[in-house]
Simulated scan of single mutants.
Amino acid sequence: MNYPEEKQLYMDGVACQYLCHIEMPKNRGNVFPAHYHYYIEMLYALSGQFQIYLNGIYHEFAKGDFVLINSREVHKIDAVSDNGGSYIVVRFLPELIYDGMSQSHFELKYLLPFVTDNLIHEKVITQATLKDTMIPELMQSIIHESAQKNYGYELAIKNHIGRIYLWLLRYWHTHEETSLPLDFEDRKLKEQLTPALTYMLSHYDSAITATDMAALCNLSYSYFSRSFHRLMHVTFSEYLNDIRLREAEKLLVSTSQSITEISQAVGFCTTSYFIKLFKEHMHMSPKQYQKHLNSYTE
């Protein structure tokens, strides 16, 4: 069984910028099979215990814990408690934070931790960490505003999402030095590298070289390579391969394409190299990964 990408929802022809509800599974077992979507998703557990698969790793979360799911990150959720439980679900489009049109490219650094997978940050923030913070109240308020629909509720929900977003950025910045890699002193350099980062996210399936990206950014090859490593804490090829692997992960759970077809679709030159890298990152072959996720059909 394959699990397709969950599409964006539209209202009057316009993509919904946010979606929110309370999920209440009644029994132990699979709540959602493996899938992905363009929305950034936040969960806040109200009761029960759950297990979530994210970025190749299983995480536990329970009452009072907060979970972040990046845009287009493959995930599935299982209820661990016999009587299920409940959790708040809030999804929002990346454009709610950064639209790339009215804002400076400098602000792209605040969006990257939510749309890329190679940046390391906590996926589950525990109840103990959230104690005395505004996060639980803000998540509850989003649900309340959505249900009551008082005048201006759309603005209130966007404001609450923005406050949670800012809290996460500052929390990661304080506790994890690598969570916001675009922290150079030279603002011009940040802006120069942005074309390469955005290009790679949308053209990963094409032949891309560091030389090409250096030219795109109007930098020499050596300077671009050094700056890229300083920016992302990985080499150019490692970053590109990571993007391709994450896209391959999505195809493995959403299509019936062969491993060779998927390898080619995401830009790898050879299937053997794709399988080798996939095993290094996921600790299982692409075929094993596909069978592993698709075995949960409850």
Rank of each mutant, 00 (worst) to 15 (best):
M232L: 10
F228S: 00
L216I: 01
Q288P: 11
P25T: 09
I157S: 10
Y38D: 07
S285I: 03
L231V: 05
R226P: 03
T209F: 02
K26Q: 14
L189E: 10
S263F: 10
Q140P: 02
T194V: 15
E176M: 06
A45I: 04
M42C: 09
Q148Y: 10
F274P: 01
Y151V: 14
L201Y: 13
P181Y: 10
I208A: 02
L155F: 15
E154C: 14
S295M: 02
D117H: 07
F50L: 08
I88Q: 06
L180H: 01
E247C: 05
L189K: 05
I22Q: 08
E73A: 08
T211I: 14
E41Y: 11
N2Q: 03
C20V: 13
M24K: 15
S146M: 13
H283G: 09
G29Q: 11
P4F: 04
L251W: 04
Y199D: 09
E137W: 05
S227H: 01
S272T: 13
L155S: 14
N118A: 04
S206A: 15
G56Q: 04
N83A: 13
N70V: 01
I161R: 01
N83G: 15
Y153V: 03
S225N: 06
H75R: 07
L277N: 11
Y171N: 03
D99T: 06
V74R: 03
Y223Q: 06
Q264V: 09
C20A: 15
I243A: 03
E95Y: 08
L93G: 11
Y44Q: 00
T129V: 02
D65L: 01
T270W: 08
I135C: 00
K109P: 00
G48H: 10
S141P: 06
P33Y: 09
P25S: 08
L19G: 01
D186L: 13
M282A: 13
H59I: 03
M101I: 12
C16H: 12
L68K: 05
R246P: 12
F92A: 04
Y223A: 10
D65W: 00
L43M: 05
S263H: 03
Y223P: 04
T209G: 06
L197F: 11
G13W: 08
Y153P: 00
F32G: 06
F228T: 00
L19M: 05
L93Y: 12
K190F: 12
